[in-house]
Design a protein around this nucleic acid. Structure first.
Lengths: 218, 218
DNA sequence: TGATAATTTGACCGGTTGGTAAAACATTAC
DNA sequence: GTAATGTTTTACCAACCGGTCAAATTATCA
């Protein structure tokens, strides 16, 4: 007899691993472009090259597919922030954080758009993660930044809004890629735009946070 | 006989204006939250408080509604950039541009999300606008910024990526509002967060672009 | 090999989708 | 008032949606 995936407790088959991988890959494509509600199982099945019932044999519902995708991606997505090191040189840490985030935007744009779609539409499936693990991690790193500012190593600033600014500027190149390309035109929208962006953002944040230039009242 | 809206050439009735307004208001709500494909006509009709066929009497298709909405909103959305004045004081211009964009994110978050959804999903309905009028306007303002940099009034930087950075950081507070609130928690996510954001962003961009602090190579 | 379990498929289901037809109803112009 | 026009509703349609079912097919292993 055939047992759907969620009911199995035994270890997974070779075929299971391959097919689940294949499905999640296709689902990432579709969910990232159309959001949860805008995506259809048929479409995912077609991209994955299998029939709809076959796909539903591995993931019993559309939500289960989305859930599995979110769980798998969320972890990797926060890695750059986790690497943020309180013991390191502040300017170097911020600079390399920007670079890592920008690399992720370049190398994993679908993952970025998956989250962007989800959050844009009110984060109905990941609200708990936002208020739980994500908030905890940001709180921790915000404290590091605050300590650097207090020690006079960087300018005084609101650490939360600094993190938001780094997120938004870097993810912009994945989420709004079509706009970036449209505005830059054919000539400037090659892969070189990521180097240009990196150079600009490092300049902006390093200078923007350097001590002595700030008029902050804080 | 009843003629659908697109076939009429005469001037519009009072009822037409009122109802079309009502419909676009409802459509903005729905499209901004779910994207084009994730939205349904029934849902828009319910929000607008009218029957689906009645709604379709004013806009013959779902696409027509979306089109009308985009056209109306796109113009207003670019106003802050148009106000960007080549004759003004560079730092003051950039500062007030940031402020205006942030005010729009605060006061018109649905409009911001409408565009974000559209672009995120590949801009299938507004690609021409991106490569045409939008690009033209950005090109013009980029030239202004370049001139300021050449005159030594602000640091040398890539003007396009500067504009992208201002767009992304400000619109972030509309598009990713639920994440911002989730991370900031109950205490900090009141309306005061916009003032905090404004203060931080002005500091970041003003210091980041001030002359003399840059290590830019050219 | 054959038995057993895992996988795949085609047919199908009730509900929803975008959209239509036509007639009932309301408003305006004369 | 009444005729013409503009508006709204009821009933409806074909296609699509997420998901089920049972049977057919394939892989695994004694």
């Amino acid at each position: 007899m055939a047992l759907p995936r969620a009911a199995r407790t035994q270890r997974r088959t070779r075929i299971q691993e391959e097919k689940e991988e294949l499905i999640l890959e296709a689902a990432l494509d579709v969910f990232a472009t159309h959001g949860f509600r805008g995506s259809t199982i048929d479409q995912i099945a077609e991209v994955a090259g299998m029939s709809k019932p076959n796909l539903l044999y591995y993931f019993r519902t559309k939500e289960a597919m989305h859930r599995a995708l979110i769980d798998r991606v969320l972890d990797n997505w926060l890695d750059p922030l986790r690497e943020f090191d309180a013991e390191g040189n502040p300017v170097a840490e911020i600079r390399s954080y920007i670079r890592r985030k920008l690399e992720m935007a370049r190398d994993f744009p679908r993952e970025s758009r998956l989250f962007a779609n989800e959050i844009l539409q009110g984060a109905p499936h990941i609200e708990d993660e936002l208020k739980g693990p994500l908030k905890a991690l940001v709180d921790e790193k915000a404290e590091v930044i605050r300590a650097w500012a207090s020690a006079g190593k960087i300018a005084r600033c609101d650490p939360y809004h600094l993190i938001f600014a780094i997120w938004s500027t870097t993810q912009h190149y994945a989420d709004f890629d079509v706009q970036v390309r449209g505005v830059l035109g054919e000539t400037q929208s090659g892969e070189g735009r990521f180097e240009d962006a990196a150079r600009f953002l490092e300049q902006l944040f390093v200078n923007g946070l350097s001590v002595g230039t700030t008029a902050s009242r804080g």
